[in-house]
Amino acid sequence: MLQLQNLRASVNDKSILNGLNLNIKAGEVHAIMGPNGSGKSTLANILSGKNGYEVTGNLKYEGKNLQDIPIEERAQKGIFLAFQYPLEIPGVNTTNFLKTSLNTIRKAKGQKELDTLSLLKLIKDKASELNIDEKFLSRQLNVGFSGGEKKKNEILQMKLLEPKLAILDETDSGLDIDALRIVADGVNSHKNENNAFLIITHYQRLLDYIKPDFIHVLSNGKIVKTGCADLGQELEKTGYENFK
């Protein structure tokens, strides 16, 4: 699904990613762990197409050159980013935003746009699975939401949009243990053999709930070690020191 070879990225001559290689196949869950500033969010941003980076390397998504695909088309083709810091958009009703987003993506996929009634029902059902109070849906998008509420709202969007490649950037940070479990359930229920996850996290605790197939350690813009689930436990004990 996703192949990254020798990905290098810099901003204003400051290099952030320094030759990163990564292969993700459908049905897999990959976790990326690494200290602050190691380039995790940069990787997520580049995969979803954010402007402002100088990017080189051979990047392929479903066989196509990723760099050629505009941001919104990547989203329409199934790349989803749950933001580390979801944006507040004043004056924009949350439900309306979800409706617009979902119908735009459905249309791009050649699916029928949903009418308002079925949309509202779908949004309500998914929200209740995540234990999101209905009143959040009528508020302005992310405005005044707590950190945890914003993160849940990201997972709600993931569940609605049904992406092929979901990138979760520190979705677990700032969640209490109950919210963490709900979010993990959300991910697990979405997971199947046709989609894949790239989960960026600092902590092992999320990985107790979501079993990754691979764990990669990112340091100074490079993957310095790849292992399976127990690498997480090791990191928890020893920290990142050994991997610099």
Partner: peptide, 13 residues
Amino acid sequence: EDQLFYCNQRGLN
């Protein structure tokens, strides 16, 4: 710009 990116990431042109 970040708000625009957020909307683009949700499929909006």
